[in-house]
Design a protein around this nucleic acid. Sequence first.
DNA 1: AAATGTGAAGAGGTTCACAGCG
DNA 2: CGCTGTGAACCTCTTCACATTT
Lengths: 230, 230
Amino acid sequence: MIAPDGRTPFVQTLVGVSIPRLYAYHRALRQALAAGTSTITSRELAALLGQTIASTQIRKDLCALGTLGRRGQGYQVAPLVDQLSWVLGLQRDWRIAIVGFGFLGHAFATFIAARESRFHIVAIFDNSPKVIGQSWQGITVSDMASATQIIPNVGCEIGVIAVPAEAAQDCADLLAMMRIRALLNFAPVLLHLHSPASAPPVIVRNIDLAGELSILTHRLSAASLNSEEA
Amino acid sequence: MIAPDGRTPFVQTLVGVSIPRLYAYHRALRQALAAGTSTITSRELAALLGQTIASTQIRKDLCALGTLGRRGQGYQVAPLVDQLSWVLGLQRDWRIAIVGFGFLGHAFATFIAARESRFHIVAIFDNSPKVIGQSWQGITVSDMASATQIIPNVGCEIGVIAVPAEAAQDCADLLAMMRIRALLNFAPVLLHLHSPASAPPVIVRNIDLAGELSILTHRLSAASLNSEEA
DNA sequence: AAATGTGAAGAGGTTCACAGCG
DNA sequence: CGCTGTGAACCTCTTCACATTT
């Protein structure tokens, strides 16, 4: 793997840089590029991000990726987007298997297919007879049990778990056995993954909808208490 | 508002305590309580959380909520759950309006209704004629335009934005005008909320599905580079 | 003896101030 | 002169070590 500019990328050496922040830059800069902006300063980018990130922080982050800015001018947007794509792993395509094709799995598939051209849904599984056999954008929903045949064929790197909590662990085990390398888990359970010793560990990221809600309720409660005191 | 034990709660004064972590404790402890555990040590709780949080960290956090543990024994699970519920704002019920009743809105509603008894979906909006008029658990999906009449009637604190990116800002504006106090936003856009000067600012939390995916792809890329070097 | 509670040390990430270029 | 790049100060959160309590 060689970065677009020929330097060896040093993705793993980025200290002090948060990936969500880089993704925010990436999204904002893609929009700016689409709108015809060719050059941008760190302060302008901070404005695009609603001043949620200081311009100094932006410069620190971008500097850590390699020097791309021109002093006195700012940054070239196009190469910056490329560089960020590279670091975020978005310079290549990825194949995704969705497990659980209820409303959530369906929503995820539709959202990703519509917006992210580098992510491809290549397999869909469910265990409900009502859903199995249905077709979504040319992909037939298969029984979970047939994952052992299908996944080696289509070869996907990422699994999305959108099943009820009770079924999530079994799905995760099965996907790990199929050498899936990363999981996005919507089920509100802690997954225990004992990947085979030969394979690298499975990367898991959890999205907990109830947890997100409770962050809101915490802050609402705190806000009420503050206003009562005032 | 008075905490269960009579002390004045100090929700807003919790420094050095992350809310996602408290929520993780809450979930694990509720399960432990349901399984019949009445007492638990910080180390046992760390084990329940898959050793993702050190027992020292747990003690620091719980200590910050007020002294609830007994030295030599551990913590009483039941009062601990109550205390955490209080801090997280889960000691009361909350009413939610969902805007956008495609697959994602539907998934969110179903998920919350099934799992979280203190959250109540009280209004659903969409702008597609195909969806308006449908009924979900006794709630009729209404046109977005009628939100100005419906929301003041049902009085909900939290709004969920599950519409396409292009429509999200308008929905947020409308909800803010209706004095919604918090928003969970699934649309991949930065919302600008100019809440009326008289009202407290609207609390926003964004859930960015593509961003979550890119965190996985970043780590997958980094892992590949590392293994190549090894 | 066992586990909590907590000051102190440490690590990590953010902001500041300004040097360095264009 | 403007904006980037960056060492240093700063601050927040985590970990350690151990005193304290049951």
